[in-house]
Nucleic acid binder design. Structure first.
Length: 371
RNA sequence: GGAGGGAUUCCCGAGUUGGCCAAAGGGGGCAGACUGUAAAUCUGCUGGCACUGCCUUCGAAGGUUCGAAUCCUUCUCCCUCCA
């Protein structure tokens, strides 16, 4: 079946909405945060741990899985669900972000994008059609259209050309996509130009996708710019379709995104900074490697109920990082994921109970002065 | 007892035709970054200070020299080989 999003409640004072995303692998309460498992694994986390911490839907990546182990193999071993043993819903990104992040390793043409593998330098051509084929083999519940994540800063001319190309690619993706049990989301681009965002949104809405990604944000622009683009873009999208802000996941951005009508988020931040020794807390960021935690018996966050916080001291986790022990990365990732998942749960409840403003304000307070 | 080699900044370890050496590099330590993952990664700092300069430092003491981690003398300690 195609995914379907139903609204439970709309916030009166903001664009925020509480809803449910129905998928053939179960319902997902929104707004939701999706942990990122680029290579069919959320780095260092086992599926049962993700489930236990409250993760409901995961993201994986077409480009990376295409290179290794190959989509045919994943398909043969039961698709992504069977391969990585995750029974909940999965979303695959198209490789559009790699068009951006792989920079010099790729050439963009109208036909598609020529990549040089970051692994062995071999050449590969990604077209909207080939990406659809790959994503269908991977078999996620939601497949993202092949787009170009535009770098920042970019000129108006470049942004316009790239955005229009992404729209043409979206149409090609839609035409090429055949799998009935998978939903294809289009992706709004437009850089930091309001009129281009509008052009992009209109073009995509016309194609009628079951959901829409908002891409090309959080690529280096100031946060107020991103928020401005966001609150301009979401009202241009259909009320009854889910909106997915791609690649965003710092606690403050999640709150601001929800307030602007975003239903889905994904981000590598919790797992990446976790592996690198930084954790989110109700008081802001905390770099657990720092000397001041050497003898600290407290948990990472005294208000947190995650496995790491229920069982271990800052002193111990710092020790794990300082000795390079893998468990440190695992505990910090566990905590950070739980923290964001819990944050989203709080926001969902707040929308439902009509007190989003207060909750958002409280959650934001810890992060305001951070950046 | 005899012959030889060596002691360098927190650690290991370059540097000994005297100036370009507060002294390579690595480790450790300290701090920072990270937002659809080329990331268990990357960056900066790591003698002191009133810091575009000055002061103290290369086992210890003394000496040569305009100038010494680098040359000379004595001493202390370590290692190897022969007895």
């Amino acid at each position: 079946m195609k995914v379907k999003w139903t609204c439970i409640k709309k916030d009166r004072r903001s664009l925020a909405r509480r809803g449910t995303l129905w998928t053939s692998h179960g319902p997902v309460e929104t707004p939701v945060f999706m942990p990122v498992g680029t290579q069919a694994t959320v780095k260092s986390m086992a599926p049962f741990e993700l489930e236990e911490m409250g993760a409901r839907i995961l993201l994986s990546n077409t480009y990376h899985l295409y290179l290794r182990p190959g989509a045919q193999l994943v398909d043969k071993l039961g698709g992504l669900h069977g391969f990585m043993k995750w029974d909940g819903p999965i979303l695959t990104d198209s490789g559009g972000f790699q068009v951006f992040s792989l920079g010099p390793l790729r050439k963009i043409r109208e036909e598609g994008v020529e990549f040089r593998s970051h692994i062995d330098g071999s050449k590969h051509l990604f077209t909207p059609e080939s990406v659809m084929q790959t994503e269908e083999l991977l078999g996620a519940d939601i497949a993202m259209a092949f787009d170009e994540c535009i770098p920042y800063p970019a000129t108006y001319e470049y942004t316009k050309a790239a955005t229009e190309r992404t729209s043409r690619w979206a149409a090609r993706c839609k035409a090429a996509h055949t799998r009935e049990d998978q939903s294809l989301f289009g992706i709004v681009q437009g850089g930091m130009f309001a009129d281009l965002r509008k052009l992009s949104a209109q073009a995509l809405v016309e194609m009628d996708f079951p959901g829409y990604g908002i891409g090309g944000l959080s690529v280096g622009e100031e946060k107020p710019v991103m928020y401005e683009m966001l609150e301009y873009t979401t009202p241009l999208l259909p009320e009854d379709k889910p909106r997915y802000l791609m690649g965003v996941g710092s606690p403050d951005c999640l709150v601001e995104g929800v307030l602007r009508g975003v239903d889905m988020f994904d981000c590598v931040l919790p797992t990446r900074i976790g592996r690198n020794g930084t954790v989110f807390t109700s008081q802001g960021k905390l770099v657990i490697r720092n000397a001041k935690y050497k003898e600290d018996p407290r948990p990472l966050d005294e208000k947190c109920g995650c496995y790491a916080c229920r069982n271990f001291s800052r002193a111990y986790i710092r020790h794990l990082f300082n000795t390079g022990e893998i468990l440190g990365a695992r505990l910090a990732s566990t905590h950070n994921l739980y923290f964001l998942l819990n944050l989203m749960a709080e926001l969902r409840l707040a929308i439902q109970e009509d007190r989003l403003e207060e909750t958002a304000g409280r959650l934001l307070a810890a992060w305001q002065e951070e950046k």
